[in-house]
């Protein structure tokens, strides 16, 4: 038995203990930083559980049963998510580049008006925009996507412009001072620094679109709003409650997912 061996063993043991501590440390740290993320899903689960508990005590008539059939609800949910997802992607593809363009020196003069109009346009009802599209085109999902995109465009554009405005001017000057071209500065300094804002914009767009998509059923594009419409048409309170509960849960869950994504991106970009 040489002392060297036992030292090696000790060292290995130490390393193992250290690694274990580190691992626990990471978990504990993640928990202490992000425990609040558990709250919302918990509320959603409890809320939905209460709702289904209530419904299970009710005698559902045949109409109610038909409307609340899982296949029907899931089909509408799928339509809803497709509407929201497609329109959100479209909003980002349009609003972010335009926002970046507006942050260029030659377009700065347009920023003020865009921000002012964007602020005021919050009062322009998405419902109205959606319905007007039905007159311009026809009933159906494509029209709904166009309407949703238009309705969310200005708020997201506004967010992007503000986000890029907030990038520290001295960093931009430093980048230019090191000899970066305007293009390099934009893509290597300004945009990375504005990523948190763009992600926040994505979240805003998503929440808006999930909300407005509930109204797409009024122009025959389906979605979970259909449940509410049917409940109102059939005058069935149980259906109304279930529909409201499901829509609220879906919206909260999507916002929560976007919030988690936002945190991941923000923590990565420092």
């Amino acid at each position: 038995m040489s002392t060297a061996t036992s030292e090696t063993v000790d060292a290995q043991a130490d390393a193992a203990v250290e690694a274990e501590e580190k691992k626990q440390g990471t978990v504990a740290r993640l928990w202490s930083q992000h425990y609040d993320l558990v709250i919302l899903p918990a509320i959603i689960v409890v809320g939905l559980a209460l709702l289904f508990l209530y419904i299970s005590t009710q005698q559902l008539d045949s109409i109610e049963q038909r409307v609340l059939e899982p296949a029907n609800v899931l089909g509408l949910l799928r339509q809803h998510l497709v509407l929201a997802a497609v329109s959100t992607i479209l909003v980002l593809v349009i609003a972010v580049p335009v926002g970046i363009m507006l942050s260029r020196r030659w377009a700065r003069r347009l920023q003020g008006p865009v921000l002012a109009v964007g602020g005021f346009a919050q009062a322009l009802p998405p419902f109205g925009v959606l319905l007007l599209m039905a007159f311009a085109f026809s009933f159906g999902p494509t029209t709904a996507v166009v309407g949703l995109t238009l309705a969310a465009l200005l708020p997201v554009l506004r967010n992007t412009v503000i986000g890029l405005q907030q990038v520290d001017q001295s960093l931009i000057e430093a980048a230019r001072g090191m000899g970066m071209s305007a293009r390099q500065t934009l893509f290597r300094v300004e945009v990375p620094l504005a990523v948190p804002v763009i992600v926040a914009g994505l979240r805003v767009a998503l929440v808006l679109n999930v909300g407005t998509a509930t109204l797409a059923s009024y122009i025959g594009a389906g979605g979970l709003g259909e449940l509410v419409q049917q409940a109102l048409r059939l005058n069935r309170i149980n259906v109304l409650l279930v529909a409201g509960g499901i829509i609220a849960a879906v919206a909260l869950l999507i916002d929560w997912l976007a919030g988690v994504a936002e945190r991941v991106v923000v923590s990565r970009s420092g």
Binding site: I39, T214, G225, V228, L240, L241, G244, A248
Partner: peptide
């Protein structure tokens, strides 16, 4: 703040539906 912020993300149609009864 957390609670009222969550309420803000609930689509208005859902809230109208939930309060109607």
């Amino acid at each position: 703040l957390v609670f009222t912020a969550a309420l803000l993300t609930v689509p208005s149609l859902a809230l109208y539906a939930l309060f109607l009864p």
